[in-house]
Amino acid sequence: MLIKKPEKIPSTEITSESAYLNRRSFGKLLAAGAAMAAFPARAAVPVDELTPEEIVTGYNNFYEFGMDKSDPAEYAHEMTTEPWKVRVTGEAAKTGEFDLEDILRGLEVEERVYRLRCVEAWSMVVPWMGVPLKKVLDQFQPNGNAKYVAFETLKRPSEMRGQRSFFSSIDWPYVEGLRMDEAYHPLTLMVTGVYGKPLPNQNGAPWRLMVPWKYGFKSGKSIVRIHFTRRQPKTTWNLLAPNEYGFYGNVNPNVDHPRWSQATERRLPSSLFNQNRRDTLMFNGYAEEVASLYSGMDLARYY
């Protein structure tokens, strides 16, 4: 088992799923104790273990399919993902409608193990597969006016029952966005698979954004439009509750959300008697890589 200090090598630290599944056995506990004795300096940093696949693909927030965590796994199969067209608009040389296949052609798919921190104070560790967003965006040659890029999720009420709900106050489609330097950061990924398989619908098939240092709501799913813009895009949760969800959505244990303390998180699976709680890390543990993007910014104001 490869154990590396989480903040140091965020994208390659991998624990096998079977090692995870054995975690609760007594022998494993002894082994962990021995490992801790052998590396006392590391004892304070909990090891990140992969969240089991059935939780990654069975416990999701994807309101297009319903409010409950189990709704996406139950209903997302109603969405057709082939063919998948992507509309590119705004401040770029190449705009228009593209087949996803053409966009991804020739791009090498990498595996990245990232922590995923939800604003609701739970977290996972997920082995994604995807391509750096930079390589996707470069194809469209954004121009100098492109300061932000917005991502739109599919809006298709006939296949997305959450969008048919009379009781939702979300103005579909779901929109998220990044500053261009955030979008071009090497950690920012367009995900096309998970656990070595094509991305399941409930996780945002056929492709989704993954920005590991931001709360999960920033990483839009099932993307159909990429829009380069001069002005900061109006994003869904920010519009809905501006005092709760900022444009940035950076993971920050020092800035509480009105509903949840962000100081700690429950790493799933949590259990009743051991919640698997751990301290939330600044920028979700990716501070070394991304803190410089925000130097000089008041992060309590730009949350």
Binding site: K69, W122, S270
Partner: peptide, 17 residues
């Protein structure tokens, strides 16, 4: 949940309860 974690209460049993 004690017998088979995650069986009925899911990945986040405290929240579910």
């Amino acid at each position: 949940e004690v017998q088979a974690p995650g069986s009925l209460l899911g990945a986040d049993p405290g929240e579910a309860l």
